[in-house]
């Protein structure tokens, strides 16, 4: 029979930690689970129904969904190009110094979440989808740059070296020998991030960076809850469709 002291100690430590957490939170939990608050909640939820469905709002929601898609698409594309540009030095092509600096830069870009980037970029580029696109591009360049750099490091160097030995320039040797080897991997990373970015693009608007999120924020602020419900439905649909589609594609690719 193994000793129970360690698990019990761990459990006790965890309970103390949890109690401290609960004690910090300012919420009035008793009243939150009372009958009055349940009625308030029910009314709040009820106010969203029925979702608005006049042609005007449907047109706006469709435009918002397209805008969200466009943001994710352009943002991922910029990130793929910038990521490749950063991956070259980060894979150690131009020496240790350049490698260290770009890795640091990539870590910085990646560590700040999209939404925080969006809040920062809105200061520089104003409200609207362009800010959201840039925010997605900044965060995703960090992620893709690192993944691309790893892919480039694992590529076999022989084709590149053999072209170089035959007098081909460095750039041409890269595009004809190294790049085709990593292209499938790069494309699949970029597609995977695109899928994530569609979800991100849908919410970035809550800090004013365009897309469905901005519509949701707008209608909620004006207490137009029926319109907000339509935007919510569009958001859920968009995310679900992307999920199903990418599952299909992945299954088709792996089988």
């Amino acid at each position: 029979m193994p000793s129970l002291t360690r698990p019990l100690l761990a459990l006790a430590a965890w309970l103390v930690f949890f109690a401290a957490c609960v004690a910090t939170l300012s919420g009035d939990w008793a009243s939150l689970f009372s009958a009055g608050s349940a009625r308030g909640m029910a009314k709040f939820v009820g106010d969203f129904f029925p979702p608005a469905h006049d042609p005007e709002i449907l047109r706006k929601v469709a435009a918002g969904s397209l805008e969200t898609l466009a943001m994710s698409w352009i943002g991922t594309l910029i990130a793929a190009v910038a990521g490749l540009g950063l991956a070259l030095p980060a894979a150690g092509r131009w020496g240790g110094m350049a490698k260290g600096t770009t890795r640091l830069l990539l870590n910085g870009l990646r560590a700040v979440p999209e939404l925080v980037w969006a809040a920062l970029v809105v200061v520089a580029a104003g409200l609207g989808p362009f800010s959201g696109t840039l925010a997605l591009a900044l965060h995703t360049s960090g992620v893709l740059g690192r993944l691309f750099a790893e892919a480039l490091e694992n590529v076999s160097p022989e084709p590149y070296e053999s072209l170089r030995r035959h007098g081909v320039g460095a750039a041409a040797a890269f595009w004809y020998a190294t790049f085709p080897q990593v292209l499938p991997q790069l494309a699949s990373y970029a597609l995977y991030r695109w899928e994530i970015n569609i979800r991100a693009a849908a919410i970035l608007g809550v800090v004013g960076a365009g897309g469905l999120g901005q519509m949701l924020h707008f209608h909620l602020s004006l207490f137009q809850l029926h319109e907000a419900a339509s935007v919510l439905i569009a958001m859920i649909l968009l995310v679900t469709v992307v999920d199903l589609a990418s599952n299909r594609v992945r299954r088709a690719l792996t089988s």
Binding site: L69, A70, W73, I74, L77, F130
Partner: peptide
């Protein structure tokens, strides 16, 4: 695909 998307994203 890119041009309309860029226009939509107010690029």
């Amino acid at each position: 695909v890119l041009l309309p998307a860029g226009w939509l994203a107010e690029f």
